[in-house]
Design a protein around this nucleic acid. Sequence first.
DNA 1: ATGGCGCGCGCAGCGCGA
Length: 257
Amino acid sequence: MVLKIATWNVNSLNVRLPHVLQWLADAQPDILALQETKLIDEKFPQAEIEAAGYHSLFSGQKTYNGVAILSKQPGTDVIKDIPGLADDQRRVLAATYGEVRVLDLYVPNGESVASDKYQYKLDWLDKLIAFIKVELNRHPKLVVLGDFNIAPDERDVYDPLVWEGKVLCSEPERTALQDLLATGLHDSFRLFEQEEKQFSWWDYRMAAFRRNRGLRIDHVLLSTALRERCKRCYIDKAPRKWERPSDHTPVVVELMS
DNA sequence: ATGGCGCGCGCAGCGCGA
């Protein structure tokens, strides 16, 4: 048996619900973590998702942010905040599915390295790392996935010179991601030999997708106990080719269960 | 060299994303 787990920043679930339902039908994931739903909980399309055979957990707000986890089996032990981080922004959702703990993240973008939002991003990542140390002790079988808004290294950037030192690629952000991995997590994409120039996000402008001018900023991180069970990690570019797509596309892992 | 799109909100055009 294979457990299929995916992450997708949908850039408005209101607009992208048909895409999500289509992708659920096509890919049949066991768990799909969403980011940027941009919906208050009262407007979450729970009935439509249930009709597709999926349970849902969600933590949303108006206009911005918002995370959700869709799953074939219901989740338990739900957390909607990093403990000790009082934050109105809905960026965190954790739940347990059988023996696997899932932590869905929408990491702050940061805007630019000179921005207050960039400092907020680095502080947020510090708090996250402290939380993950605790979470890994409680749940050795941990998946941390989502939109990290960090391209881990040069392989993850279409033109490293253009992006050098810029937000999403700056050294402090990359160091924070390395510190996060050092708690005992592994970038599932890099567990395997991969083709070059594979990305999970492409700007809507400049025909960036057609020219493959993208970044790999959406990740599925696995604890050591789950790394051994990971058979595959791939980026599914198909939804990025659909009409009116999100600028991100799903990243998928398959675990032996 | 710059900006170029798409979203929500709300009804014009701006803030935001990455």
